[in-house]
């Protein structure tokens, strides 16, 4: 009998420091993946946590991990060449077909950029697949910015808006809450425009409210839920909302489904 709980050891190929508390770990991995899926990563004797896959290729995957607790503290002590335990991938991830041929805006708050990074990258690299591509990203402050190189690269040919809630002396970019920048998007074809929204619960709540108010159709909005996915296989109950197991049916949901989910 297959034991889905047993993780395997994988080698850390590289560690990139994004911010003081967000590191991107590149891990040797071969297997089919979809952007927005997550892995259960662990350290023996410390714990296990769900982490979004933010990038991958044929022989590796990347995960951006924020230092928020005991397990992530320990993961930050790991070095290139060390091993990390993983099992997965879990969840549905972003189905590219939902966005192909459409006018799409990706909206991310903070670490919410990680799960959609791969999907944005895909459309930046394959511009013909979408009618129009925009990216709106909000960070708390300039020093909280993730994937700075990627964002610069995306910005070369696309409309990418980065805002910070609070600037600092060296910050020359946009400031203000992410929701205040919706007006800067191309809203000419709003009833057809697709929005993909990922971020902390409070940001999601206000962003979705604003998008609907502006005229986005509910069926054209996609979200990714953060919950405490623990087993990843629909058993432990931690991520369950109503009849939905976020680890099985999510974490990516169409807003028509997502809005009906009440904790």
């Amino acid at each position: 009998m297959n034991n889905p709980y047993l993780p395997d050891a994988y080698k850390i190929l590289d560690i990139k420091k994004e911010t003081q508390i967000d590191y991107t770990f590149k891990i040797a991995y071969e297997g089919a993946l979809v952007g927005g899926q997550f892995m259960e990563i662990s350290i023996p004797g410390v714990g296990e946590a769900p982490i979004s896959i933010c990038n991958y290729d044929d022989s590796s995957l990347e995960m951006t991990i924020r230092k928020v607790g005991n397990l992530t503290d320990q993961i930050f002590n790991l070095e290139k060449g060390d091993t990390l335990y993983m099992r997965g991938p879990y969840g549905n991830g972003f189905n590219l077909d939902h966005y192909r041929g459409k006018d799409v805006v990706f909206i991310a708050g903070g670490t919410g950029l990680a799960p959609i990074r791969k999907t944005i990258d895909h459309f930046v690299n394959n511009p013909d697949e979408v009618k129009n591509l925009e990216v709106l990203i909000g960070f708390k402050s300039p020093k909280d910015r993730l994937f700075i190189d990627d964002i610069d690269r995306w910005s070369e040919k696309n409309c990418v808006t980065v805002t910070v809630d609070q600037g600092d002396d060296s910050w020359t970019g946009k400031t203000g809450l992410i929701t205040t920048h919706i007006d800067k998007l191309d809203l000419t074809n709003i009833s057809e425009k697709i929005a993909v929204v990922v971020g902390p619960p409070i940001m999601m709540k206000f962003m979705l409210f604003e998008l609907i108010k502006k005229g986005f159709k509910e069926k054209n909005i996609w979200v990714s839920f953060e919950r405490k996915m623990s087993c990843g296989i629909g058993k432990c109950g931690h991520c369950k909302i109503d009849e939905t197991y976020v680890c099985l049916e999510g974490p990516v949901f169409n807003y028509t489904t997502a809005k009906a989910l009440i904790d």
């Binding site: 709980y5 662990s42 350290i43 023996p44 004797g45 714990g47 087993c231 432990c236 109950g237 931690h238």
Partner: peptide, 27 residues
């Protein structure tokens, strides 16, 4: 009620030996 929570226990100081278990949890 079937929900559970994972627990990791360190059995040696060098972290090489550990145990993962699950325990009943609930809403």
């Amino acid at each position: 009620c079937s929900c559970y929570t994972m627990q990791d226990i360190k059995l040696s100081d060098d972290k090489k030996i550990g145990e993962r278990r699950r325990v009943w949890a609930g809403c």
